[in-house]
Write a protein that binds this DNA or RNA. Structure first.
Lengths: 114, 114
DNA sequence: ACCTCACATAGATGACTGTCTATGCAATAT
DNA sequence: ATATTGCATAGACAGTCATCTATGTGAGGT
């Protein structure tokens, strides 16, 4: 074991300073990861950007399906994921379902990133 | 087709306002989704929080493995994912590999969220 | 030289995910 | 009443992922 300035060691038997910061609790980490997973998909990111960029920040499935070269059930599936994760709300009006972004949900996500 | 005030319609054959905002380009969306996927895992979030909370914002695998009830190869795997995605750097010193957080990488991610 | 230790890599496996087709349902139009 | 339309749900399938055990590698210690 070779010492330098009496404190720091370059090569030693032990790692020393195995001390690491307290991790995020497993439960917090899982909650945050679940929210991130909902957003970590290219199609869902496109959906969010399209809806938030729409006239009244809402859009129906028809327009979204036309813009994204995917089948309507696939779009519906992604929208459901975003609703379940709290990023969108769904409002059925007549024959159409209108989706709107939940205003501060993404900001909350941003603030929770470590 | 029933009209109200000559412009807005409550019930009509067409959705009207199928106009949606321009989506994020597919390529941008995929790049962002790839970065988000790297972070959207509870174990990797815990690793990030532990490393950034460590004395000199760096930690070696030994300490991380002890804290997270997972096998060492699994921790190594997650660390590699984070390095590949640009969230961590790896510095091999002697027998130990020290991982450090890339300072502004998470901020970039935050700013890219739609 | 040889052994030990810290970490990485390889391969296997069960679980999850994104997409599709097929179908159901409720609201509107005829 | 019946047909049509917009959307959701169900089920199937291929690809990806998180984890494990087993093994390789390179630096240090003896």
């Amino acid at each position: 074991m070779e010492l330098i300035d009496g404190n720091q060691s370059i090569a030693t038997d032990d790692c020393l300073s195995t001390a690491v910061g307290e991790p995020l609790s497993r439960k917090e980490a899982e909650t945050l990861a679940t929210a991130l997973k909902a957003v970590a998909d290219p199609t869902r990111l496109q959906l969010l950007s399209m809806i938030s960029g729409s006239p009244s920040s809402e859009a129906c499935v028809c327009g979204l399906t036309e813009a994204l070269d995917l089948t309507q059930p696939t779009i519906s599936h992604h929208l459901k994921v975003l609703v379940d994760a709290g990023f969108l709300t769904r409002d059925k009006r007549g024959r159409w379902a209108w989706y709107a972004v939940v205003p501060d949900r993404l900001d909350v996500l941003r603030s929770l990133l470590p």
